[in-house]
Nucleic acid binder design. Sequence first.
DNA 1: CACGTTCAATGAACGTGTTTAATGAAGGCG
DNA 2: CGCCTTCATTAAACACGTTCATTGAACGTG
Lengths: 215, 215
Amino acid sequence: MSNEPRKQRPGLRASQKEATGKAVLEAAREEFERVGFEAANLRAIAARAGVSAGTVIHHYGDKRELLHAALFDDLDETLRQALAGLGPGPLEKQLSELTRAVFGYYQRRPKLSRTLLKESLFADEPWARKFTAQAGMVHGALARLATEASARGELRPGADGALFAAAYLSFFYFALISWVQGAHPSPVSMVEHLVHQHLEGLRPVRKTPSRRSAR
Amino acid sequence: MSNEPRKQRPGLRASQKEATGKAVLEAAREEFERVGFEAANLRAIAARAGVSAGTVIHHYGDKRELLHAALFDDLDETLRQALAGLGPGPLEKQLSELTRAVFGYYQRRPKLSRTLLKESLFADEPWARKFTAQAGMVHGALARLATEASARGELRPGADGALFAAAYLSFFYFALISWVQGAHPSPVSMVEHLVHQHLEGLRPVRKTPSRRSAR
DNA sequence: CACGTTCAATGAACGTGTTTAATGAAGGCG
DNA sequence: CGCCTTCATTAAACACGTTCATTGAACGTG
């Protein structure tokens, strides 16, 4: 039972392995963004990293995991910064900022955005778990935003923040899928309209709301 | 050789081609549903249809197109029947029926539902066009349902039926993706909750609506 | 240091989707 | 009927992701 915190010295072999892994990841990022996922060639990525194809697989399991390993952190960072950088504004404005920021992540990788979305939505384990956790983080942040908005009087007191968060995510993914499939020029305004309608509701008016009915 | 119905357009070569095409399609359906998309082997499908692997590709271009060719019509039929069979009930009940019916289509193909959804949402041309058209048909029918509900007084007169349809589709796909990824046991109730919230809205109450706020 | 063990790395081999050149039967035409 | 054209079909070749046995250097231990 020697479960001591056995401090592993860097070790020459371990650090070499880490270096190789990073080189492969960098080569993969470049190739994926340059020619897209399906057109990217594992042997080409391996050559660019100065290793053999077998080494790439030995490190990352398969091509899809390599994609996720190469790009997950960037998306995660984008999400965290977008959430952290939200202004105090009204809920709809905050969501609009968030939509724009995350959309930008995909827009910045035109050759890759379609596959990126496709493979992250339908990832296998262990990445499915990571993406679920990531979505859970965003979901929680959104629910918190809704609660704050409720406290400001923008939403009714009993509003279900978690359910609202699910609705926003539905709208966002639907719009994003429509965009990558070429069905809409920009998901931002679609999400905005859907969020607005979701907040206002569609039931018969009891009294005309005094809020601006823009758009 | 007098069994020829007449000098018809088809011609011997054309009708032979159509026969092999159908045989391939049937073999593909069976193999796909039996072992799933990725595990299905083109040479096995070809053998089952009594042709060579090249013939399968010659007919359908690639493996993904074969999947769509094999299963699109079934989904289309499911959708049309679900839409045609909707009762006169209130809008939320109609949507619940629709959700159940379409969900059933995926539920009936456990080995295939994940890939089916994945590949249809992110299809390439020419199938992307067909799926977009199919979604457009459902979208139109949903907008019509909303308009009718509006005429019945369930929704406010100015309600945007098209936007509501987009919201429903967002919820449905989000719930379906969550389901195929194993994140939720059944998409039906999730869609129901989201639709309900969408209809009621989240703005502060001006006057207490007579409906009870479930959940 | 000597010796056995671990393991990152390799390249050849494999499975499978896709491409291609060849084939031969159907179809059109004088 | 002869001849040429079309084209569905095929087998072989190819491309690429993935598997696997092998290797040799790093590592741990006495």
